[in-house]
Amino acid sequence: MFRATIDAYLLRDSVEILSVLVDEIRLRTSSDGISVKAVDPANVAMVTFNLDSSAFDDFEADESEIGLDLTKISDILGVADKNDKVSMELNENSQNMSINIGSFSYTLSLLDPSTIRSEPKIPQLELPAEIILNGTDLRRAVKAAEKISDHMLLGVNDDVFYMEAEGDTDKVRLDLARDQLIDLKPDDVRSLFSLDYLSDIVKPASKSNEVVLEIGQDFPIKINFEIANGTGKVGYLLAPRIESE
């Protein structure tokens, strides 16, 4: 069983976080809250998402797995105002979910979870450098990079975290020293990432005051942040590109 009420904007943010990588999810429910692990079809990036039951106004659930079409939910949320509440209830016998927003009531048909790509294993990575910064700074750097290239270098050198993009003719670089960051665990590392992915991931991250980046040498990057006043946790993992000679 699954019955919950949540702020519309929080549900919308959650859908946005996941739909960066996938269209369909296996939503895990338990008495503690909800969680999703998903990997994009090209195996380049994955997301782990947890939302504690305390993020909801009302929450009651047992261990279960629900198959959801994110596009449909996002369409439904189109009618919601920022301050609306969304209440959801699973109708287990008919394999659908009732969703109520204000005076709207929807019946959303569910997907058979077994038809959705199974949850990825989470690789255990030791990433030497850790940077904590404001989400807005990250987003600004990515936006600047998008203008001139399709990939971007993220690295740490001598207590400075840098983001650099080089196009065919132009180059942009943002240096953030320790005092411009919230925290820095330095190590001499750098990895290159596709902006196709990075800009989509950074968009939801930019709403957070504290984004934690973990970087290695030509290794995947971890991008972690919290939502809903710390009751929700989001972790992205993005595979690097190979630097061409």
Binding site: N43, V44, M46, L192, P220, L237, P240, I242
Partner: peptide, 9 residues
């Protein structure tokens, strides 16, 4: 040039 995550599993 894009790597995939599989090699880190």
């Amino acid at each position: 040039h894009q790597k995939t995550l599989d090699q880190w599993f």
